[in-house]
Write a protein that binds this DNA or RNA. Structure first.
Length: 877
RNA sequence: GCCGCCGUGGCGGAAUGGUAGACGCCACGGACUUAAAAUCCGUUGAGGGGCAACCCUCGUGGGGGUUCGAGUCCCCCCGGCGGCACCA
């Protein structure tokens, strides 16, 4: 007997032939454009259909390809999208690529290959991988942020920001043309634009050859890059004007509270007051003679605790504060200069973790406390930062930990002006909680909140200060010196910038010979000398935009991806925004937490500007946000190349099929939760799918699959089976709505087990089950459906184009139910009774039960609690 | 340090204040097979008792509380993960 070939065959045999039918269905969906979405203006568009916009965070197409974290969120949205489609919604479920980015440029540095080439190859690989998972995307809407057609509108939106200002009165953006009409000068207008140029100290990375936004520093440092502080002329976006709205308008959003809080903390609103101090010092005479001259300046500080003003015992300026040079006395000159130098050269690391020790130097100057006339010394110290508040503080060591530490170190006086909340309490210093004011003149006896209010009134009445709301959020550093990003559509002449004409968009960067950073903060595009120099003597802006630019508005472009005249048509924008039922355009947005404060804040900001200027109809982009949890390696550690615990989706698809991968990722646990990968779990769901396959087919001796003889096109007479099927229809639908995919799958497994055990598998109910499973395992269910439905001789449509089945409430009802009997809350007996058994009935049965009597024996029954259909609790003592 | 999230079998996890451990994995037993794989049928929280059907006790990080009844609600503590971190 020759057994060799057979053995080989069985080694290769899979529990069901997914390798045959998965690619087949993918090809069919592709060629038939099964999941094409018709929007306004498209053929077949039905404006009466309700819309549902479900969005994934689009990937950066790295050379490494998809990892298993991508399909987690993508499968979740795919299930929702397919489910909503079956429920009559016009579903927009698009995919694209966030394709500007550093790796392609780094590769260009090494090889000289244009980043566009690398990017195109990576996108192709991502597309292949995404298609191999059977996602129901409308591929006609695919976009990449590097597409010239897309870059055009990114630049167009930038110019919109450039040509707008924030009107404080109406609390929204308006065109700068209004200011021109009012006769404002060019410089005045430039100082108000939402996109503006400023010389600011920025973080510059020599090895990346670019500056970075505050928000990005950590990420790049953790990847081993260095950053240093440099004053540079940069493009900024005036996001701070939106700080209050970015906080307030979170309220209407259906986002996880944790993410909302993260954004609120990032924006960092503080209420307090500015206080004006008179600072004077003795300077050498400007005339060069020996007579010393007294000079005097006003210094403003910001404080959240104006109620402690009587306790201010010194003042601290940031080392970079412009007044430092003017007020330092000759005697302190050398020390101050030396200290400022150290601060300027301090690396980020030294300022942060390693050096929390307070340091500082006395300037020799003194300030007058406006509330009591006390003369206090003025110091400089790097624990006060130029970028926040006014860059100066009043120090109240008795009631601020940092000030206390500083005062201890330098022997500065401490004056307590706050007692504890309760009379007679003497709290240890520093005491920072609310309390009762003491040693504070007109504030004495007031609780902190009242004292604050009274002090602010006093300051405002006496012209010594003002109420002030301060945010931690800084304006967004928007320019980079790299190559692979959108060039700014700006030219310079005679030191002034201006926008290029819309007709010149997109403005694309020319290819370079050499993509290596210069080692200086000069933009890489400066190397393209011919491109930079314009015939009329203007020169091009050579900075490029950060990667965030493209991802700030991609969800809008999906709605109208090939529009040549606008970034999105009015009609598409209105339709996909919905009928004003919610404040956000996208109904569901799924992605990782890593974007909680960057992408999600930037995109909200751009959207609000577009809203203010009438280009979109909702104030927010994303109505509901869900954060998928990280998938860890089998070892419970974060997946990483160096740990060798990375799971490649391609391998899983090859071994178990796309449906099994999809099912497994949804079955692992709650979507939001962090959870470890288990290949055994993939086998488990693969077995489940194989069971579904075997309900439908019997394997003939030649290895072919015949529709099972158990499947019959008859009415379902098995009441219990019918009940389970309808329960499954109900629960799966409800669970999908709740994004509780793991429990939905568990119910479908129960249903599968019931079918497996049934003598007869009624065709109608089996197809209902396949329909419910279809959003999860689209390939398998289409394949089974096509072949099984054929036994009726009727032509069947695609399962994914049918409607979600409705369950029959009558089928859910059981005739007999189990009632649990407890004595004093402990389970003692189970009674099987008629569905509608009343309390009296159950009570009498329970009180006859020997098991119950055993526990009530010799006790008095005090109370009986009856929960209909569920439980009876006898309280006895 | 501050803020947020989370602690349930050997593992992933399930439980509108109402039967803790659904479903799956692992493990074990049985059927089929010359054998194995696959498949099908069972058992499977811990401890104890019974020939047995079964029964008892304990059990959701720890301690207290509210309640007829707590994994679920409240207070305190412990442990893990994530974010922010001199923001005045």
């Amino acid at each position: 007997m020759v057994r060799g070939p057979q053995t080989t065959m069985s080694d290769d045999r899979k529990p069901y032939p997914f390798r045959d039918f998965e690619p087949k269905w993918q090809a069919r969906w592709d060629s038939e454009k099964t999941f094409r979405t018709a929007g306004p203006g498209d053929e077949g568009f039905d404006p009466a259909k309700p819309k549902y916009y479900v969005l994934d965070m689009f990937p950066y197409p790295s050379g490494a390809g998809l990892h298993v974290g991508h399909p987690e969120g993508y499968t979740a949205t795919d299930i929702i999208g397919r489910y909503k489609r079956m429920n009559g919604f016009n579903v927009l479920h698009p995919m694209g690529y966030d394709s500007f980015g550093l790796p392609a440029e780094q590769y260009a540095i090494k090889t000289g290959q244009h980043p566009a080439v690398t990017t195109a190859a990576n996108i192709e690989n991502f597309r292949r991988q995404l298609k191999s998972l059977g996602f129901a995307y409308d591929w006609d809407r695919e976009i990449a942020t590097t597409d010239p057609d897309y870059v055009r509108w990114t630049q167009w939106i930038f110019l919109l920001l450039y040509s707008s200002y924030f009107d404080a009165e109406s609390n929204r953006a308006r065109p700068v043309a209004e200011l021109e009409a009012k006769g404002w000068t060019r410089d005045q207008i430039d100082a108000e634009r939402l996109a503006y140029v400023a010389d600011t100290p920025v973080w510059w990375s020599p090895d990346l050859g670019t500056v970075l936004a505050n928000e990005e520093i950590e990420e790049w440092k953790s990847k081993g890059h260095t950053v240093e502080r440099r004053p540079l002329r940069q493009w900024m976006l005036r996001i701070t004007k939106y700080a209050q709205r970015l906080i307030d308008e979170l309220d209407g959003l259906d986002w996880p509270e944790g993410i909302k809080l993260l954004q609120k903390n990032w924006i960092g609103r503080s209420e307090g007051a500015t206080v004006e101090f008179q600072v004077s010092s003795v300077q050498s005479s400007a005339k060069g003679d020996d007579s010393p001259a007294e000079n005097s300046h006003k210094v403003e500080v910001f404080t959240t605790r104006p109620d402690t003003l009587f306790g201010a015992t010194y003042m601290v300026l940031a080392p970079e504060h412009p007044l430092v040079a003017k007020i330092t006395t000759p005697a302190q000159q050398a020390a101050v200069e030396a200290y400022r130098k150290t601060c300027a050269s301090k690396s980020d690391l030294e300022r942060g973790d390693l050096n929390k020790d307070k340091s500082g130097v006395f300037t020799g100057a003194h300030a007058i406390n406006p509330v009591n006339g006390a003369e206090i010394p003025v110091w400089i110290a790097d624990y006060v930062m130029m970028g926040y508040g006014t860059g100066a503080i009043m120090a109240v060591p008795a009631h601020d930990e940092r000030d206390f530490e500083f005062a201890q170190k330098f022997g500065l006086p401490v004056i307590q002006v706050l007692a504890g909340k309760n009379a007679g309490e003497t709290p240890a210093l520093p005491y920072c909680d609310p309390g009762i004011a003491i040693n504070s003149g007109f504030l004495d006896g007031l609780a902190t909140a009242d004292a604050k209010a009274k002090m602010i009134d006093w300051l405002e009445t006496n012209g010594k200060g003002k109420r002030r709301i301060q945010f931690k959020l800084r304006d967004w550093l928007f320019s980079r010196q790299r190559y692979w990003g959108e060039p700014f559509p700006i030219v310079w002449k005679d030191g002034h910038h201006r926008a290029i004409a819309d007709s010149e968009l997109p403005l694309l960067a020319p290819p370079l010979e050499d993509y290596k950073p210069s080692g200086t903060p000069d933009p890489l595009l400066n190397k393209a000398t011919e491109w930079v120099q314009l015939p009329d003597g203007s020169i091009r802006e050579t900075n490029t935009m950060p990667q965030w630019a493209g991802s700030c508005w991609y969800y809008l472009r999906y709605c109208d991806p090939s529009n040549k005249d606008r970034f999105i048509s009015k009609e598409a924008e209105q339709y996909w925004s919905g009928k004003g039922a919610s404040t956000g355009m996208v109904d569901l947005y799924v992605g990782g937490t890593e974007h909680a404060v960057l992408h999600l804040l930037y995109a909200r900001f751009w959207h609000k500007v577009l809203f203010d200027l009438g280009h979109v109809g909702t104030p927010e982009p994303f109505q509901k946000l869900v954060n998928q949890g990280l998938i860890l390696g089998e070892d419970g550690q974060k997946m990483s190349k160096s740990r060798g615990n990375v799971v490649n989706p391609d391998d899983v698809v090859r071994e178990y099929g796309a449906d099994a991968l999809r099912l497994y990722e949804m079955f692992m646990g709650p979507l939001e939760q962090v959870k470890p990968w288990q290949m055994k779990g993939v086998e488990g769901v693969s077995r489940f799918l194989a069971r579904v396959w075997r309900i439908a087919f019997e394997e003939a001796s030649d290895g072919s699959h015949q529709v099972s003889a158990k499947i019959k096109d008859t009415e379902c007479t098995d009441k219990e089976l019918l009940r389970i099927v309808h329960e499954t229809i109900k629960k799966t639908g409800e669970d999908i709505e709740k994004l509780s995919f793991n429990t939905a799958i568990s119910q479908m497994m129960i249903c599968t087990n019931a079918f497996t055990q049934a003598e007869v598998v009624p065709l109608k109910e089996f197809i209902q089950f396949l329909t419910v499973l279809n959003p999860f395992a689209p390939h398998l269910t289409e394949e089974i459906h096509e072949r099984v439905a054929a036994i009726t001789g009727r032509r069947s449509s695609l399962l994914s184009e049918t409607s979600w089945p409705t369950y029959d409430p009558a089928a859910l009802v059981r005739n007999e139910i189990e009632i649990v009997v407890q004595v004093n809350g402990k389970l003692r007996e189970r009674l099987t009774v008629a569905r509608d058994a009343d309390e009296e009935m159950v009570k009498s049965l329970a009180l006859q039960s020997p098991k119950v009597l055993e526990h009530t024996d010799g006790k008095t029954i005090r109370k009986i609690i009856f929960v209909p259909g569920k439980l009876l609790n006898i309280v006895a003592a």
